[in-house]
Design a protein around this nucleic acid. Structure first.
Lengths: 201, 201
DNA sequence: TCCCAACTTCACATGGTGTGAACTTCATAA
DNA sequence: TTATGAAGTTCACACCATGTGAAGTTGGGA
């Protein structure tokens, strides 16, 4: 259950990375169910038993994978435009851009974690943190609008941030991008325009 | 894999219903993972083996549960206002109402099926059908608006229907209603206003 | 060169799905 | 009233996934 202490030497770090990479590929190419401990091990070129030397459980592996993905895909860079936005409108646009460009890259893995959430408290907590962070971004955008007196009157900071978060949830992105085959450009543009319509006075 | 042929006598039907009811309760009270074949059987008061006399697999059970739920919760009645709407605005409102009142009632089960979808083709097909039906309702609302020349110019019938479907996806409902603790009334009102803002010229 | 962390192999427990086979129960139709 | 078959039970498997224990092997760095 508990996480494994951070590895000492380079060899161990290398194997951990290989395992995470393997897990990611399996999830993205064959779905979350395909990423069994045995399959991940084989793909990474180690024994099944060795996986447990790096991750104490499958949930632990998934949680680590989530962090790994955020780093590899440069989550900080994706969020920066939102936090550095000069005004509320820029913040909304930044949010739309992020939803269309960054979230799809971590979606398959995020889904896998979200599933584990239902029966694993550790995964659930990890998920909570990630959601909270995304919520802060939404709140920031809405607060900017409110400060500028441009927030549409039906919204409070609270409800506005809630709704903005909902409007960039994975189901929304997934449905439009994957099921309905929108392009990222289409999605970003439509979300941008939609957010303005919904939240601007 | 294949579904079991429809039962002959009343006894069989009674047991099937009991199994479906048990599965629903387990999913809603303890999450999808708790609804194992053994747990469902025990709760329904039959042996684990007997479940397979009614449903050929867990996926088959879930699919049947979905249909059962739609009937019990009167899906047709929930959709009727949308199809009988006099104009586009009424259709949007009906959609918002349905999203806030009907979808939450089937959500836990719908989630369970959506998960099975990833590794079971049968469940996937069942899910496709349900989604397609919900999509038709969205398309209908957007078409009404277009016919009345009230559809905002950035939308085509296609993209408008896509977006309306996305804006009433389970993640949206779930986040606002369950995670952010909105009331159904709040949700219906906000969705209603939001749909108007987004889709009306 | 020696040592220890990383890794391997093999064995096992647990718990879920799904199936086969033989037996019992029970409603009902002749 | 009885026999017949559908519904259900019990017990036994096979299979696969997670997770652990224990003993042995390897390889890189001080």
């Amino acid at each position: 259950m508990a996480a494994i202490e951070t590895p000492q030497n380079a060899r161990s770090r290398h194997t951990s990375q290989a395992l995470l990479k393997a897990a990611r590929e399996l999830i993205e190419q064959q779905g979350p169910a395909a990423a069994t401990m045995a399959a991940v091990a084989e793909r990474a070129g180690v024994s099944r038993r060795a996986v447990y030397l790096h991750f104490s459980s499958r949930s632990d592996l998934l949680a680590a994978l989530f962090d790994y993905l955020n780093e590899v895909e440069d989550r900080d860079a994706a969020f920066r435009p939102l936090w550095e936005a000069a005004d509320g409108i820029a913040a909304l646009d930044a949010r739309a851009q992020m939803a269309a460009d960054f979230l799809p890259r971590i979606m398959p893995t995020a889904r896998a974690i979200q599933q584990a959430t239902h029966h694993d408290p550790d995964a659930a907590q990890h998920w909570e943190l990630a959601t909270a962070s995304r919520y802060d971004g939404c709140r920031r955008a809405i607060e900017l609008l409110a400060d500028e007196n441009r927030l549409a009157p039906q919204w409070t900071i609270q409800t506005g941030a809630d709704m903005l978060l909902a409007l960039s949830s994975f189901d929304v992105i997934d449905l439009l991008l994957n099921e309905r085959q929108w392009t990222r450009r289409q999605l970003a543009d439509h979300l941008s325009a939609l957010y303005r319509r919904v939240f601007l006075a």
